[in-house]
Design a binder for these strands. Sequence first.
RNA 1: GCGCUCGUGGUGAAAUAGGUAAACACAGCAGACUUAAAAUCUGCCGCCCCCUGGGGCUUGCCGGUUCAAUUCCGGCCGAGCGCACCA
Length: 854
Amino acid sequence: MTRYNAGATEAKWQKIWAENKTFEVSEDRSKPKYYVLEMFPYPSGRIHMGHVRNYTQGDVVARYKRARGFNVLHPMGWDAFGMPAENAAMENKVHPAKWTYENINHMKNQLKSIGFSFDWSREIATCDPEYYGKEQAMFIDFMEAGLVYRKESWVNWDPVDNTVLANEQVIDGKGWRSGAQVERKKLNQWFLKITDVAEDLDKELDNLPRWPDKVRVMQKNWIGKSKGMHITFDAIENDTQIRVYTTRHDTIFGASFIAIAADHPISTEYAEHNKDLMAFIEDCRKLGTSEEALEKAEKKGFKLDLHVQHPFRSDCKLPVYVANFVLMEYGTGAVFGCPAHDQRDLDFARKYDLNVIPVVIPKGEDPKTFKVGKIANTDPGTLGNSDFLDGMSVEKAKAKIVELAEAGGFGEATINYRLRDWGVSRQRYWGAPIPMIYCDDCGVVPVPKIDLPVTLPDDITFDKPGNPLDHHPTWKHVKCPTCTKPAVRETDTFDTFIDSSWYFARFACPHADTPLDKELTDYWMPVDQYVGGIEHAILHLLYSRFFTRAMKQIGLCDDKEPFDGLFTQGMVCHETYEDEKGEWVLPENVEKKEDGSYISRITGERIKPGRSVKMSKSKKNVVDPTAIIDTYGADTARWFMLSDSPPERDLEWTEEGVEGAWRFTQRLWRTVTTMIDKNVAKIAEPDNFSGQAKELRHLTHSSIASIGKDIENFHFNASVAQIYKFANAIAAFKSDGSDGDRYALYEAVKSIILLTSPMMPHLAEEMWTMIGGQGLVSDAAWPEAHEDLMQQSSVTIALQVQGKLRDTLDVAKDTDKEKLEELALASDKIQNFIGDKDIRKIIVVPNKIVNIVI
RNA sequence: GCGCUCGUGGUGAAAUAGGUAAACACAGCAGACUUAAAAUCUGCCGCCCCCUGGGGCUUGCCGGUUCAAUUCCGGCCGAGCGCACCA
């Protein structure tokens, strides 16, 4: 017998799929549509195991849905703009475009070698002017719809690279590339009004039942809806007014100070005549944005020569501080401090010796004697020391304050969100140019659509720090589209998250002249099943939800939610290895000896194994997919990715595991080639089946049912286990040569090929040919599970005494309760456990269990 | 600090809807085949007792609901993730 040759076989079928355009789809309205999408990769150079896992999972769903008769869209593309290409340009003197397209080319070949059912005719690269030009057009439409504005704002500024950094590119307050201390800088930036739809983004999370709870919770927290009120305080010394946001207006009688942000307009105003305050504000700005810095920072304030009148206590004047812990970006940039019930306010009050008045009194405490020490009181209670609020519940007191403030015209109930508008300007070359022109006379003018796309110039240099577009001698100089006088282009480019916020919709109509072809988009959207990493839980998934709403608003599509179903897969992990010098060693250079110790294949020195963590270049615990595919073939790699670990959990990549998958690939091939009896395809279903044939048919049909269900529920490891069980039974089947046995065996073999085809498509095609299957297995229908064949004539009943298993009983299916009870009591083992005790109760669940209670 | 998720054999794990815990696989052990190895095949494989056969215990710990709990409820312990000066 021949061994299965994965390399040659896989190449053969990949070629056939490509030639037949097997996975290219169009809008076929005779079938239900199904859109399966995996998060497209950044073309970093090579595919890694995380990609293989992600795309294998999506591919199983796509191929399964095809077999179930759906018109399946399963596209792939490239999130091709971004900083790494510019880094490569600076380090290796290679043009970002060249670097990117070479990477795309290489990775595309890698993906093709894994046999994914992608419709490559719809391939998109976001760095293609065909793509980003449409993005520019859409941005101009967004602007006309009032979804875009330009504003000066504080950003993370890297003083070495001379560029804005996204929050995630700031690590411990330092630029991830330069290592320079990040500064806060005020810059003119373009913003998208995501906060306009904050309420809807929050509310609609409840209507996404096929999203993981975890992701929905994370988005809810990120949006950060809170219900509170604004209160305006009047100054004593002058006509200044300070508006604060609070969610604890019930504690207004416990207020002992007002704190405002360093960037608050009043702070700025007072700093003009006060050098000490100016220095204090500078200090606050230097504090940086890292969490660690904030954690350690002491609560500090600068007292202004300013007091405000308490709105309900004529005798009370509250001092106003500029404080380093108040954020200008949240609420109104001003708060009132109630030290008794807020730890941060309490720390501040103790430092500056301010009043601490408890106003929410725990049950059983006397308001006059209740004291707050070093820990602020956050226990529930009723109002005290609060004049007309005394005795009220917290909720009632809040309502009362809102009512009085609204009547008095100094405050109102409001809803606040943590979510901020999305700053999309980046001072970088390798991104989509923002299509705007600045004219001295006409102001900001959008590039006329006829002039789109605004393409990136090729002749750029990276020898100076900063944005090459800005340095370019001619690119930015243009005539004003309105008055034709000399004007300049915007040299900032879009945040690359914009590119990934609509690519899923563009896949529906990748060659359309407009950003989206509404008819095609409405046919394919929303994505029925999206698969990707949890690391995109907020940014990408939230931006995409916003973008889809914006696209709907300008009439490009009908849906506002882009992803109907979301699945977040776990990471691929590997053991780490350290040599005697403490340096990381690649797994391929480590050999495990018989005694369980590890040595280096290169130097022979002892290697210390470490815990298994996500595969990463820095820890060198990576396994190259190409090497695995060369050795074992793509099907084995796919199979291993799907076995054992549930797809949402982390997967531990092990040599033993891959070899186990490899052995199964060979075993299945051997089983099918030895067991198959092609002539059976021609015989009709016989009337009579032997006992073993009936058993095999039962397993065949219950496998069809359970594997389908497991795939739909993303329980791929469970479907793999069932295939193992099924394959073992087929291999063990000894046909007696009767038509019944031959038929049952043929049916089982044919079914296992179809059931395995979403996971190991190349092997399945080859086996399909072997049994004389019609056409491609990739085009074949999923087998049908016959309900009547899934039934078994007998069942095993568990016999329990006091809820503990004592015996089992094989009986005909659907044996009635009385008979089961009688049989249970007839068991010697059961009688032993009952002894001479009285039976109090017998619970009988037909086909399941008999429990005797004594 | 707040929020979420998860704790099952040596390991990855399975267990419709509360109904025989450990399916399937990895590792291990024993055997067959072989000059030998690889490959392949067969058997065993949660823990503790008596030694055919059986008995006791077992899903992080404690408690509750139930005839019956890995599953539902409460508390605790542990691990991981997310957010975090959010007023």
